[in-house]
Computed example of a mutant assay.
Amino acid sequence: MIRKIIVLLALLATTLAAPVSAYWEYGHETIGQIAYRNVTPHTRAAMDALLRQSALLETPGCPAGTVEQAAVWADCVKKLGPRFSYAYSWHYQNVDVCRPFDLKPACKDGNCVSAQIERDVKLLKDRTVPVRERVQALAFLIHFVGDLHQPLHAGDRGDLGGNQVSATYGSYAPEKLNLHSIWDGYLAERAISTPLSPVRVYTAAEKAAVQAGSVEDWSRESWQVAHDFTYATAMGGDACAPTGGRAVLDQATIEKLVPVAKLEVERGGLRLARLLDEALG
């Protein structure tokens, strides 16, 4: 019996030490689910019709037949190496949070997440575009809107979106844990799992309050969240203070950040719904 307990503890430790890809599956899938629940019936039918053609992507190891699968497809295909390597820089736009907001340097030649969101909407609107390309645009769009609403995909301090900032999360402090992985996964998962579930049909007033603005407006807002909350809480109140060792997110700080992270997921889902209605509705 003791030996079995030791084996189980070892497996648990291995699981905790091996987080998955960007914004983790849970965050991206939740944003996709929120959007799917809040688009018009016509848009939902158009999405389903495109996703039924996902075999055209020829990525059997990375299916995209449902909104949940499509939400993580862009991360899944990274493992295919050179075939999709051109899209690596499309997942983020590291705009310096310690300088005035300026998208242009971070989006050279359209190689950033906000530019690709706008490109995918255009491709989906154009019914003359081959079906395979429209399916791919749909999968990319679902994923990239999620990425934009992970604050460390929208702003950073020249530290690879917080990947170079070691951090502790409550009492959890493995050596390789960093600020990016906390916002990608641990904090997002807690926020999504905290009642009430963000996956629901929102009222017209709730949608109007969130969906207004442009992709650039949303970029600036997410960048501001990175400054005001992500870095400020990690750097002792000053987002641009010198990094002094390991960032510490204690339990009180985590509890304050949960509603911030949850709001980002809700914003991502409802804004994705708006873009999908514009493109397919």
Rank of each mutant, 00 (worst) to 15 (best):
M1E: 13
I5A: 14
V7C: 05
A10E: 01
L11M: 13
L11E: 02
L12Y: 12
T15E: 10
V20F: 04
V20A: 14
S21K: 12
E25M: 05
E25Q: 12
H28C: 06
H28D: 09
T30F: 09
I31W: 00
Y36R: 12
Y36L: 11
N38G: 10
T43D: 04
M47F: 06
M47D: 02
L51C: 05
R52G: 04
A64E: 03
V72G: 01
V72P: 03
A74H: 14
C76G: 05
V77E: 09
K79R: 14
G81M: 05
P82S: 11
F84A: 08
S85D: 12
Y86I: 05
S89Q: 11
S89H: 13
H91W: 00
Q93V: 00
N94W: 15
D96H: 09
C98K: 07
C98A: 06
D102P: 02
L103S: 11
A106I: 05
D109R: 13
S114R: 03
S114G: 02
D126S: 04
D126K: 08
R127Q: 14
R132W: 01
E133N: 13
E133F: 04
V135E: 08
Q136M: 15
A139D: 14
I142Q: 03
I142L: 04
H143F: 04
H143P: 02
F144V: 00
V145H: 05
G146P: 02
G146M: 07
H149I: 01
P151D: 09
P151I: 07
A154G: 11
G155L: 09
G158P: 04
D159C: 04
G161Y: 10
G162D: 04
Y169H: 10
G170E: 06
P174L: 10
P174K: 08
P174A: 02
E175C: 00
L179T: 03
H180K: 11
W183K: 05
L187V: 08
L187G: 07
R190V: 12
A191I: 10
A191H: 04
I192P: 02
L196D: 15
P198T: 11
T203V: 06
A205I: 01
K207D: 00
K207Y: 03
A209Q: 14
G213Q: 09
V215E: 07
S222K: 00
Q224G: 03
H227K: 15
D228Y: 07
F229A: 12
T230W: 01
Y231K: 06
G236C: 01
G237Q: 08
D238Q: 14
G245W: 11
L249I: 09
D250E: 06
T253Y: 01
T253L: 07
I254Q: 01
E255K: 14
E255T: 13
L257F: 03
V258N: 09
A261R: 14
A261C: 07
K262W: 04
L263F: 03
L263M: 12
A279N: 09
A279G: 09
L280W: 09
L280T: 09
